[in-house]
């Protein structure tokens, strides 16, 4: 006995649908994997940013005792830190962290004028920790941006873009250097 045309067609249709389903599952799972990788990478940045934020109150405390006349600089650091703490998402965080970096830069520049502060062990240790954290933020950002770009590419190429509707694109994390845009402060005395 042989198979009729109709049976063959049904068989072929089943095979095609099965292949399409497997393909769809593979694409979907790949998107999930890439998205999770980007999320994990973001978590890595978050750990380093939190470390930076945690170090700042101690730094401000140790500077306060020596540089009593620099309240405005210290306040600026505290404010920038609080703004960075409440910033959500890569874009907002990037800007807030840029401002915080600029404020910290000013604080360290100011410390140069206080020899006692510069010799303080606690201050030195904090400065070192902050520098090392800065480095780590840089590498975490590098890894996150790579993972986010890979994920964004994966969800934009055909045919993944047909089913990527529920997958939000990942924002890249760039720390904007706000210090360059600010007008230089001129003190007339």
């Amino acid at each position: 006995m042989g198979l009729g045309i109709g049976e063959l067609a049904i068989g072929a249709a089943i095979v095609v649908v099965a292949i399409a389903a497997i393909y769809f599952i593979a694409i979907y799972n790949n998107l999930v994997r890439q998205r999770n990788e980007a999320r994990n990478a973001w978590a890595q940045i978050d750990v380093q940013l939190r470390r930076r934020h945690d170090l700042i109150p101690n730094l401000v405390e140790s500077v306060k005792g020596y540089a009593t006349h620099e309240k405005s600089t210290l306040d600026a650091v505290v404010q920038a830190r609080n703004a960075a703490l409440s910033a959500k998402g890569p874009a907002a965080s990037g800007e807030a962290e840029g401002l915080l970096g600029a404020a910290l830069g000013k604080l360290f520049a100011l410390a140069e004028a206080y020899p006692d502060l510069k010799a303080n062990q606690n201050f030195l240790a904090l400065q070192e920790e902050l520098a090392s954290t800065e480095n780590k933020i840089g590498f975490a950002r590098q890894y996150y941006n790579d993972a986010a770009t890979r994920y964004n590419n994966a969800r934009e190429v055909f045919p993944a873009n047909l089913i990527a509707g529920s997958f939000e694109p990942a924002e890249l994390f760039e720390i904007t250097v706000a210090a360059q845009r600010e007008a230089p402060q001129v003190k007339l005395s």
Binding site: E37, N40, S132, K136, A140, Q142, Y143
Partner: peptide, 18 residues
């Protein structure tokens, strides 16, 4: 050896190791 330790930590982050 804080320097060596920090370098290992930095590269762990750059490689995305958990």
């Amino acid at each position: 050896h804080p320097q060596l330790f920090n370098i290992v930590e930095e590269m762990t982050i750059a490689a995305g190791l958990s």
